[in-house]
Each structure stands twice: as C-alpha cells, then as structure tokens.
Simulated assay, not measured.
Amino acid sequence: YQDRQQRFLSETDLERLKAKLLAYLECEIDTRGYVTGKGWAHSIAHVADTFDELVLHPELDETEFSDVLEALWSKVMIPTIYVHDEDERILNPIFGLLDRGMDEQELIVLLENLPARLSVYKQELESEQYWQVVHNVKTFLKSFLVKLHDTDRHTLQTAVLLTLKNV
C-alpha cells in the first residue's frame, strides 16, 4: 500500500516480494484462524490481504496474474476447515485481479476443473480430510456467488453456480 502511494521499492524489490509471498503461501501449513489463549494466527487471511495489496500495485504485470491466482486457489483446497472468513479474504485479491483485467476464463477453467480435482482428492485423502476440503470449496463458492451478485460478471456467476451444483 505504501509503495503504491510513494513508490520507494525498486522493480527488483517488488519481484522479490512477489516471489517470497508465493513461496510463503505454498509452504504455509498453519491454517488456523483464532487460537484460544494466543490470539490470531490467521496466516492465510493475512497473506491474502498482502496479495490484495500486491495485485493493486501498478507494477504487477498481467503475465504474473496466473501465478497469483493459482497460489490463492491452492489454499482453498486444504484439508483443514476454515472458520474465520478466510474464503472471503482469499476472494479479495482474486477480484482485484479481475478488476485489473485478468481474463475471467482463467477462473472458469479452474472452476470447471474443481469437481475432477475433488474426485482425485477423494482417492488420496482420508474421508474426514476429504470432507473438510469439500466444506472449504463449498464455502468458498458460496462466498464467491455472494461477491459476484452485484457485478456484471454473469458468465463467471453462472460458472460458479454450476460448479457449486456439481460439487
């Protein structure tokens, strides 16, 4: 946010920041939200907020949108139930990418592939873990629909609805 206002980071610094955020998101396994007695861990929500600022940065090139989208998308399909609105926080940078001109078709392809990915997960995961992933996916898709409600993105809205019905 500050760099968007004052432009003090170099292109190299921004590239390094993006790379580190992507690596962090890939490696993060602590997906807890609020931890009783300790406070907010909320790593997924906080990194989603950071990506939200990054996608708004004018130096983020369109060629980098797919990397960010894939990284965020991967955190929807985890075998730990999100309970502190992580789904909504993950959606914020995705909508930022759309607002910056990302092709909706990239999201539609991910949506269309969700049922097949879940089928693979069903074979690979223990039953409880699989159903936790299904819960996260359904919650994410419902939040996605709500966020799309007041937009003109009817094709994307239809794709989300069809995916939700097929999950």
Rank of each mutant, 00 (worst) to 15 (best):
110 L>Q: 05
71 A>L: 11
69 L>E: 01
55 V>R: 00
55 V>P: 03
62 E>R: 10
57 H>P: 06
74 S>F: 06
110 L>N: 02
110 L>D: 04
92 N>W: 09
42 H>S: 02
132 Q>W: 09
131 W>P: 08
16 R>L: 12
24 Y>D: 03
34 Y>V: 06
92 N>H: 11
154 H>Q: 15
49 D>T: 09
65 F>Y: 11
16 R>T: 15
73 W>G: 05
13 D>C: 12
93 P>W: 00
30 D>Q: 06
6 Q>C: 10
129 Q>S: 15
149 H>I: 05
147 K>L: 04
141 L>A: 01
7 R>A: 15
158 T>G: 04
164 L>S: 04
164 L>R: 02
114 L>N: 00
70 E>D: 12
64 E>T: 07
140 F>I: 01
32 R>D: 13
42 H>R: 00
153 R>A: 05
35 V>F: 10
143 S>C: 14
108 I>E: 03
112 E>A: 12
23 A>F: 10
52 D>G: 11
143 S>D: 13
34 Y>C: 05
36 T>P: 14
70 E>F: 14
84 H>I: 01
68 V>N: 00
125 L>D: 05
17 L>D: 06
41 A>L: 00
163 T>Q: 02
7 R>E: 13
110 L>M: 05
145 L>R: 10
123 Q>R: 13
53 E>H: 10
50 T>W: 01
72 L>W: 02
146 V>Y: 15
47 V>D: 01
141 L>M: 04
101 G>Q: 05
126 E>W: 09
40 W>E: 12
129 Q>G: 13
106 E>G: 14
51 F>W: 03
45 A>Y: 01
94 I>F: 07
131 W>V: 06
50 T>C: 09
75 K>G: 03
149 H>S: 07
33 G>T: 05
141 L>I: 01
91 L>C: 01
101 G>N: 06
7 R>N: 13
135 H>K: 08
165 K>L: 14
13 D>E: 15
31 T>E: 08
43 S>K: 12
85 D>K: 07
119 S>I: 08
134 V>K: 01
80 T>N: 08
83 V>A: 13
62 E>I: 14
155 T>R: 08
78 I>F: 06
138 K>G: 04
44 I>N: 00
85 D>N: 09
86 E>G: 03
